[in-house]
Write a protein that binds this DNA or RNA. Sequence first.
DNA 1: ATATATATGTACCGAGCGGTACCGATATAG
DNA 2: CTATATCGGTACCGCTCGGTACATATATAT
Lengths: 205, 205
Amino acid sequence: MIGREAVQKGRPREFDKEQVLDKALHVFWKRGYEGTSLSDLTEAMGINRPSLYAAFGNKEELFKLALDRYVEKGPGSVHRASLQLPTARAVVESLLTSSATMLTDPSTPPGCLAVQGALSCGEASESIKQALCERRSLGEQQLRQRFERAKNEGDLGPDSDPASLARYVMTVMQGMSVQASGGATRADLLAVVDMALKAWSSSKG
Amino acid sequence: MIGREAVQKGRPREFDKEQVLDKALHVFWKRGYEGTSLSDLTEAMGINRPSLYAAFGNKEELFKLALDRYVEKGPGSVHRASLQLPTARAVVESLLTSSATMLTDPSTPPGCLAVQGALSCGEASESIKQALCERRSLGEQQLRQRFERAKNEGDLGPDSDPASLARYVMTVMQGMSVQASGGATRADLLAVVDMALKAWSSSKG
DNA sequence: ATATATATGTACCGAGCGGTACCGATATAG
DNA sequence: CTATATCGGTACCGCTCGGTACATATATAT
């Protein structure tokens, strides 16, 4: 069997899959999972319902694909870069400032999809809530591992607690997402980052 | 015209209004506004639909009444007490630790209603989102005023920025709400509080 | 007792939900 | 050209949504 890009039979799709997925992502980001209807989606994506189902499965799968794309192309890539900075302090500073910037990017909805998407929801959407929850804790886990490395390298003191440090940084980032959705400006969030970094300076352990 | 508690005509209500309002609050708290259906509500409240509408108006008004009650009887009273402590440092410490405790109270849903209720939503619920947003910023405003007082009293240094300090504390509290809804334990949140307070100690300036 | 006022319960409303059957259109394979 | 496979569009499905009409039950006022 040849690869996926083998010559395809049948009528070719008339839209670009990634392009319309971006449109869907934007709607979910703004409205949340439960707040977004299929009509909202098809209108924004410029395709009709059966095409959506043929290409993406159903609303739930579409959301998860949009979430993957969000993480991959949005904050994920930026955060990955932050994690590779040489010191824990530099990692945190980069993580927080880039978050403040992205959360208030005027070309996207305010806040973070992984927070806005479905903090609480009806029973039917519980699987979505859990997917978002896992994404958030994955980010926290990566940060914790980076801090453990820093501790091993002597960059962080022997009495420091990587898990608590990571949780603190994630908490500030998630709080900033709530702030952004409430209308906080970029300058507002950068002031928060300054405060948060002071906690860092005085507890490198 | 006599007061509200004058002898009432007609068939008396068979349920206690505040009692069933508490039930509704609990459901909204757990499921969010859009995630809660009228059937969820009537089932939890133990009354039927027309009784609900007669007593509380509609779903939206019921939510706002539940929110008022939440603020009044729950975090509102606790936070009010915190604000009256003598120093800004004591205020912040009390605010954060009591938040960590309340957000993980096993007898209530995790997190804060004002954060979980509707961070993002469909167009129809925009009024709810805004009401929650106003509640959050009201709390921030009260805290800022408390810090301004502290600055005037010399408790906070002349170069301190009450608005940024208040926003920082609120950001941590809101982030803790997200953490709680993701399963963070009370100990987890108290560790975050410790970290957050270190920022405080090193920036009273 | 009668009139009035309010509460309850059943049974229903139109609208919108997520999801799909079906058919015509358009591509490749032989 | 024919067969096959996929796409796009219309028109629809059953279900649940928030909200209500209406009849009945239960209290007070006179």
